[in-house]
């Protein structure tokens, strides 16, 4: 798996769209233009885990499923590693204690058929506080412990690849 680390990025999804090779992973320490659906911004200060994966070309129905699976994978890992009780707001958000902890955005480029697909995951890991008005939390806020971002990244990627049978 080809993992590219960036100290800072505009948006990992935007960077990932530049790559054609499936399973290329773009990881950023922070994002200046992290976003969710319909242009909503995703608060991405340093400390969080922000990454995007170039997916193998697939049909749209299966890509809808992979977005939902992404939310299930993150929830499973949050539960398993930190003993938190996540719930999924289908299809693409994960909450802990009624506060958003993770958002997933799958983006496709279509020119008659799918040219490329990327799944972007923003997980609030080591974030101490959120901008006013954001109904969000982080693993660190919930557990009072520092999170090993690389370990969590590897766990998520392994599970994601498992879904594709690779």
């Amino acid at each position: 798996m080809n993992i590219k680390f960036f100290e800072n990025a505009t948006s990992t999804n935007e960077l990932a769209k530049e790559f054609n090779e499936p399973w290329t992973v773009i990881v950023a320490g922070g994002q200046t233009k992290g976003h969710g659906t319909k242009g909503t911004s995703w608060f991405s200060p340093k400390g969080g885990l922000y990454f995007s994966v170039v997916l193998p070309r697939d049909n749209l129905k299966d890509l809808e499923t992979i977005t939902i699976l992404g939310a299930f994978i993150v929830s499973k890992i949050i539960k398993q590693e930190f003993n938190l009780e996540p719930f999924i707001k289908l299809p693409n958000d994960v909450y802990v204690n009624n506060k958003k902890i993770c958002g997933i955005l799958t983006e496709n480029i279509i020119q008659k058929t799918i040219k490329s697909s990327v799944i972007g995951i923003g997980l609030n890991t080591n974030i101490d506080e959120f901008e006013g008005g954001l109904n969000a939390t982080s693993i660190k806020i919930e557990t009072k412990k520092e999170v090993d971002n690389i370990k969590i990244l590897k766990l998520i990627l392994t599970e994601l690849k498992k879904q594709y049978g690779v």
Partner: peptide
């Protein structure tokens, strides 16, 4: 290849580019 539209469905964003 130019970006024309974004079509959103099932919380997926689909960038439609010119054929």
């Amino acid at each position: 290849g130019q970006k024309l539209f974004i079509l959103s469905a099932m919380k997926m964003e689909n960038e439609i580019i010119a054929e």
